[in-house]
Design a binder for these strands. Structure first.
Lengths: 340, 340
DNA sequence: CTTCAAATTGTGAGCGCTAACAGTCAGGAA
DNA sequence: TTCCTGACTGTTAGCGCTCACAATTTGAAG
């Protein structure tokens, strides 16, 4: 920086002002300094800056299962948003969300002076462990529900499930079955709740719940049960004509099971998923599903975190991102009541 | 630090020595200082440390498609290894591996004074763009092949493919078909090469190549072609009794297509994949595949990078990690020659 | 031509740490 | 005793930047 100042014939402080976009610098000086910076390939030393400002401009991300599409995309969204806001992010991936693992991750990040942490913790147990921990800096949860007093952002899972269910009801189905995710996941619970609410509001019967573990295999098994039920009640005007599966991967399994049982989608049974994974569009048939806008979830969580950091608000806010219904062939409108 | 020194009745330099594990500190002093540190909850300021030592102990990770299982796991492995070695990592995820995007990512990381970069670039185009770039610090590629003069680590894809192919040949198949990945991917090419080499070495016929794009759907389509061929040549002692699919996801599609065509796996056609994604064990039937040890890939890449950073070696080394064959039901041994 | 405020620029201190060197203290050899 | 060596500990000076303030310049009003 001293070099730049010398070459440009100004003081180091003026160079600093140019770099920080300080208003009180004449256009001429600014141009000159900028040019010298360019010419010398100078880059401001972030460590010195952090030391002087007492701000590291570094955020931590703690995530639990980054190999799944949802968490992976969320982490990417958060990182992108942070980068746009001029922050460095460092992610720690945990295999399991035990309290010790979370605490260790926090210690690691704290050691680097992170100013805040975004925790991508879709499981109830993880959020609980997190809430019990004494964090060295503001923490914001993503997909962590709003049950506890941590601020957070999540997609409106409930609304998404409602939208799917209502879409199916509106397409002429008398009721909608549901293949839920594992009970410990908040997303799973919210989707189930939304589905149930939509059915009750519409005065439709609430069929028994099936459960999977997010994997295609578990969806396949649930699909076999569903198919068995449809076939068993053939000719008796069965009510099983539509299924809302809690994620796209399981929906894939359901589709396969139905096809193997000789049932057509959507003619015999309409199927909808949740997540809009990239493959969903290429399923056979293309899957109706709910899209999550990970970029905006990331942006919101970073926004929330920086609010806490920069203005020291202590209130814990919850932001909710709107889901988007993507209608594809797997739930094509049913023109007539199901044939007997 | 001054506080700790005052409370412990020593100089700040002694505290520094304790924290840095310097040998010349008496056991008594060390214990006392450690205790005060504990008591005060003191944490050394990383920015000041970085400024004084001129070492940020920060590494960057650039990855292209982190939503796929492979890259996601690799990034996680790298981050874990870096953390174990006392480094902070910051990851940048790119949507596309254009040269500008790569350059931008590097600028961003360079601005934070990263001491090295791990680039997870399985596509040929990405590696090429990377090699053309002037990096501000040492760069190590992961899964970037060893064609260019960048140091790197990769799984021995070639060997893995060989192992799979030889396993199938040893199981009694006269030859092995192959569903390859997209041609731009280095992994894809190496796997194809290994398959071809193994066949030639065994004096087996090399059947025509099928191609997919890693997705289950593309595997399904390839599977339909394969099934069609098997059915068409029924009774004529067809040679299509085993398929090596370049990844597990496509293998899933192949399995489905075969089943739909009324073919049994492994009795009619044996199927093997590559990657050992968590689901592979639960496919129907469980899939024979190649496991990649992402933790050790991460460890090796970080090791390589730190060698470059710490000892300023300029040679570009390539490390190769051994694959592991996981035999499951999808390639059960064939006791008799294929029935006519 | 003077005066003053605003706009611009420069100066010095210090962020918290480590490197290099300068002490201090013991204990054994001369 | 005196000296010296080695083990330990303390002192000082930055690392490269920003903050607070001081100094200077500018331009319009008096």
């Amino acid at each position: 920086m001293t070099d730049v100042a010398r070459v440009a014939g100004v003081s180091h402080q003026t160079v600093s002002r140019v770099l920080s976009d300080h208003p009180n610098v004449s256009a001429k000086t600014r141009a000159a300094v900028t040019q010298v910076i360019e010419q010398l390939g100078y880059r401001r030393n972030s460590a010195a800056r952090a030391l002087a400002t007492r701000r590291t401009h570094t955020l931590g991300v703690i995530a639990v299962n980054t190999t799944l599409h949802g968490p992976a995309s969320t982490v990417a969204g958060v990182q992108e948003a942070a980068r746009d806001r001029g922050y460095l992010t460092s992610a720690v991936t945990l295999r399991t969300a035990t309290q010790t693992a979370l605490a260790e991750a926090m210690q690691h990040l704290a050691g680097w002076g992170v100013e805040g942490i975004v925790a991508v913790t879709p499981q109830r147990a993880a959020v609980r462990a997190l809430a019990a921990l004494e964090a060295p800096c503001p923490v914001v949860t993503v997909e962590g529900g709003h049950t506890l007093d941590l601020p957070g952002v999540s997609l409106d899972q409930n609304l998404g499930a409602r939208m799917i269910t209502e879409h199916l009801l509106a397409s002429g189905h008398t009721t909608v079955w549901h293949v839920a995710g594992p009970p410990d996941w908040l997303e799973s619970e919210a989707r189930t709740q939304g589905w149930e609410d939509a059915l009750r509001d519409a005065g439709a019967e609430v069929p028994p719940l099936l459960r999977g573990d997010w994997s295609p295999l578990s969806g396949y098994q649930a699909g076999q049960q569903l198919a068995g039920r449809v076939l068993a009640s053939r000719g008796r005007g069965a009510g099983l004509t539509a299924v809302f599966v809690a994620n796209d991967q399981m929906a894939l399994g359901v589709l396969r099971a139905l096809r193997e049982a000789g049932l057509r989608t959507p003619e015999d049974v309409a199927v909808a998923g949740f997540d809009d994974i990239p493959e969903a569009e290429f399923f056979a048939p293309p899957l109706t599903t709910i899209r999550q806008d990970f970029a905006s979830i990331g942006r919101d969580s970073i926004g929330l975190l920086l609010d806490h950091i920069e203005s020291r608000t202590d209130e814990s806010t919850h932001l909710v991102v709107a889901p988007e219904l993507i209608v594809r062939a797997s739930t094509a409108r049913r023109s007539a009541p199901p044939s007997a």
